[in-house]
């Protein structure tokens, strides 16, 4: 167990190092920081001085080490565009993205599992077939199109829900939340559907096929032969075994949700880190881009780690803490 955790942590660190290297290369190969910071009219001497001050003349390895040690403390320098510390910018935008992603993830999981179980248990029913058909559309429509369609129907035509922004937010010190106001919650609805729909259909299809598989196993047949109630079999035995592989995938999806938030945030002008990233790409604001890349990767890696550990907790076969007697 300890060895397993250590191995996973080392792997995670390696992944982060590779991502850091990519982020770092952004500085060297995307745009020229000196030109960006000084503008076109700067003298050659000004440029040379800045290069020296930024450490751009040091050996690459030293520069990378420098970048790493600053990144670890959350120091990514100033945004070229806004002349504000990058970390400050990101932290101010992060709550919007995390709240959106979290609610999307939870909704996608609950609805996905519910529909997956329903369609697995009523395999040949009309309801299941319609759900499966609609879910195909859900998977194949691009996110931005879904967003635009939702805005058109619910914001423009019906005028039920807001089409952009977070609504009113409440400042809780280092975190601004939209959960506490009516307009904040209303503003969440359409972006949450847009962002969560794809993951929801994915989870639904996964739960359905997993559950059908589990329902065919010998232990389910034996559970029936023991006369257990349908409820105990479907929602006890079958669902539990279905969810073991599903939580892994669903957990990993959380990372994708945060990453894919870029599109949803753009469509709904949601003030999160995804929108910040899109803006910084337009302005070649390399420090912000690099920090975003690292942050998203970090979240991915941490989620992966947690999911692996969770898997351990859920599946007793993986627990080797208790030596198995020979017979």
């Amino acid at each position: 167990m300890i060895a397993f955790i250590l191995r996973r942590i080392v792997q995670s660190i390696l992944v982060m190092l590779v991502v850091a290297l990519v982020s770092f290369s952004l500085f060297r190969y995307v745009g020229d920081p000196v030109a960006t910071m000084l503008g076109q009219e700067a003298t050659l001497q000004d440029r040379a001085e800045l290069r020296e001050r930024l450490g751009l003349n040091d050996p690459i390895v030293v520069q990378f080490w420098d970048f790493l040690s600053r990144a670890v403390t959350g120091d990514f320098g100033l945004s070229y565009r806004l002349q504000q510390p990058v970390m400050e910018l990101i932290l101010s935008r992060l709550p919007a993205t995390l709240e959106l992603a979290l609610i999307s993830g939870i909704v996608a999981f609950i609805v996905g599992v519910g529909l997956g179980v329903y369609t697995a248990l009523n395999r040949r029913g009309v309801g299941s077939n319609s759900i499966m058909a609609v879910s195909l559309i859900g998977v194949s429509l691009p996110t931005f199109l879904i967003g635009v369609l939702l805005i058109w129907v619910f914001a423009v035509e019906l005028q039920w829900l807001p089409s952009f922004g977070r609504g009113e937010t409440v400042d809780l010190g280092s975190w601004t939340t939209g959960f506490l106001t009516e307009s904040g919650r209303a503003s969440l609805v359409l972006p949450v559907i847009t962002l969560g729909l794809y993951q929801m259909t994915l989870i639904m299809r996964l739960v359905r096929s997993e559950m059908l598989e589990v329902l065919r196993t010998d232990y389910i047949k034996f559970a029936r032969a023991r006369g257990l109630s349908n409820r105990a079999i479907n929602f006890g035995h079958a669902l539990k075994n279905t969810l073991v592989p599903v939580i892994t995938i669903a957990g990993l999806q959380m990372g994708s949700i945060i990453a894919f938030a870029i599109i949803t945030e753009t469509v709904f002008q949601w003030p999160g880190v995804g929108a910040l990233f899109i803006n910084s790409v337009q302005f070649v604001d390399v420090p912000v881009m690099a920090a975003y890349l690292l942050l998203i990767s970090f979240i991915f890696v941490v989620i992966n780690l947690i999911v692996d550990l969770l898997y351990y907790v859920v599946d007793p076969r993986l627990r080797v803490d208790r030596a198995a007697p020979g017979h």
């Binding site: 232990y219 034996f222 032969a225 023991r226 007793p316 076969r317």
Partner: peptide, 18 residues
């Protein structure tokens, strides 16, 4: 289970592992 019990072929797969 109550009046007719059943034992299947493969004990390795007859029990729910979880």
């Amino acid at each position: 289970g109550k009046r007719i019990g059943m034992v299947f072929q493969d004990p390795l797969t007859s029990l729910n592992p979880l």
